[in-house]
Design a protein around this nucleic acid. Structure first.
Lengths: 337, 337
DNA sequence: AAATACTGTCGAAGCGCTTCGACAGCCTAT
DNA sequence: ATAGGCTGTCGAAGCGCTTCGACAGTATTT
């Protein structure tokens, strides 16, 4: 293992000079700099992470806490995680992957040990037990998701309320008067996941304003669960002509079931999905959808975190505006029978 | 930030004693141990990761390199990543998330800086440019995936050759004589990803042995691409009654297309998928499938890595035996028309 | 020409921990 | 009783880096 001292000796300068070349914190003459850089290259020197962290009190690591459960949105999580890792690297940070398993303890551990300089939390609940700790620790952090009380915290999220409203607006504009919402698994609502509840809120309030009857049903996803859910929806509201689906694993089953029942999409029934674009275009019918901008959320989170670490910018809630893309799954409501 | 020295003072012992209590590397009397542990709790002490890494030359971090591209198997990747993180924690390790983006440089960086004690590589190509580096670095590592030359390396993977064989065997046993394989995206084959090529090998050799005609087509996935692929398959082999699908995003489109063409599953056509169980049971037809044991692979990788770090066990190739679960998508071949 | 301000470099201290050798006190075997 | 072996604890060195203050040398100002 090559050390700073060896580089210094090889270049004929002192260790501190090499350090300053590396960090740029003091001016160094061009000739010295070049000589040092040359030595670094020749020797294949890499600064030792531990020593650096100890001396500078900075680890250059960002902790990313992902949910352990894989009952929802796996590809979205993955996309965010990769976006975070990639964005972090462009700022010289590495990413430590924490699973939700340890829960709040992980926050304590990472904060206490100086393992990471900052944290990004995903899958935030409305009342999340990690938040008091985070507020108390003084550790820079960004949430992906929006808790009930965001004071003193920086959050990045899609504007789910607006997302819900947008879906209803689209369907209402096409003349649909009975709209059913196929939601996430019941467990998601039970643990008061912000995005699910907010979407519902947006759906409902816009439905009220637009005179649309709205029926919401949680759904586990998968073919069988969707079959049951659909049957119950149609029993209760036989005149349903519009569907909003916020559950990736219910989309394809729903389309299959509708087809099977002889309901044509979009002629008889319109479907709007809330899902990543990739899912929307790969479905058996190109779906009109509101995209979940996973990459953008990950990138935003990192940018804000880095800003905080650099002493720029403070707490803030960033809500990304939803965008609805019209594809082949939605059209005018059929003439009332 | 509480330090070792403060704990020592609080407990009325020397710093080294506290250190030995923590590491258990020397015997400590019960009373002293308890007093120290008490102080640690009272003060809320957490060892500083950087200092520890510097002094012990061990970071207690495992680097996990995941592919950047998300063109395949995203949920599988995520599941492996989470399994790795979880398993690593039970051994006292944290996981650093590296994306493939940096490529071989990431290996150099992590190895050189002592950021991580070991690496796990995913998405290994048959001829992977990271491998020579890894061999040279002497850094303990485990691959998830199997390169062409595994000498001097530890690898964990599903036995894809056997997986392919198993699929054909199942269909052949049911009397199918014309089997089509819907594979991964062409790019996956072009970059010589081990699992894809090995599966094909297994499919082909067993088909030959069983007298089954096999037609393989790469497929991007998604509805449109699957439609084109299916049309070409049926044009070339109109008598096809069995399908093997190794592409998550082609499964549901294929089922939809078959339905649409009036081909009943499993009466007219049998489908065997290679996918995680969760996908198989959530599909619109419960799929006969060979499971991809993501969790198990992640766990195995960590166990082997930890063994290496502890000086136990050496290089080894672990191939997990595939298991085929019969569900509702496969049945006897229809009587020849 | 003297005073002042930069610029570029160095030496040394110190970050918080692990670990080695030393050693005091005690127990066991001769 | 004495040598030898354990046990439990301590002090000190050192891991590789950053950073502060010092300072020599040169440039700028008065």
């Amino acid at each position: 293992m090559v050390t700073l001292a060896e580089v210094a000796q090889h270049a004929g300068v002192s260790a501190s000079t090499v350090s300053y070349v590396l960090s740029g914190k003091r001016s160094i003459s061009a000739t010295t700099r070049q000589r040092v850089e040359q030595s670094i290259r020749e020797l294949g020197y890499h600064p030792n992470a531990g020593a650096r962290a100890l001396a500078s009190n900075r680890s250059n690591i960002i902790a990313l806490m992902v949910p352990l459960r894989t009952d929802m949105y796996v590809p979205v999580m993955m996309e965010i995680a990769i976006a975070v890792a990639t964005a972090a690297r462009t700022h010289g940070y590495d990413v430590l992957l924490l699973t939700g398993e340890e829960g709040p303890d992980a926050v304590r551990r990472v904060t206490g040990s100086g393992l990471a300089d900052a944290m990004i939390l995903m899958d935030v609940q409305l009342e999340d037990e990690r938040l008091p700790l985070l507020r108390g620790s003084g550790q820079p952090s960004v949430l992906i998701g929006l808790p009930a009380d965001a004071s003193g915290l920086t959050c990045v999220d899609l504007d789910w309320t607006a997302t819900g409203a947008l879906c209803v607006e689209h369907l209402a504009g096409l003349g649909h008067r009975d709209v059913a919402v196929v939601g996430e698994a019941p467990a998601v609502y039970e643990r008061h996941t912000g995005f699910a509840e907010r979407t519902l809120e947006g759906l409902r309030s816009r439905a009220r304003a637009a005179g649309v009857r709205l029926l919401h049903r949680a759904c586990e996803g998968g073919y069988d669960a969707m079959a049951v859910t659909l049957a119950r929806i149609l029993e209760e509201r036989p005149g349903t002509t519009g569907f909003v689906v916020q559950n990736e694993s219910a989309v394809e089953p729903l389309l299959a079931l509708l087809r099977q029942q002889g309901r044509a999409v979009p002629e008889d029934v319109s479907v709007v999905a809330i899902c990543p674009d990739q899912v929307a275009v790969q479905a058996s019918v190109r779906l009109t959808s509101v995209a979940i901008p996973a990459q953008e959320m990950g990138r935003h989170a990192v940018e804000h975190l880095v800003a905080k670490l650099d002493g720029r910018g403070g707490d803030e809630v960033v809500l990304l505006a939803p965008e609805l893309t019209v594809r082949a799954s939605s059209g005018p409501a059929p003439a009332a029978s």
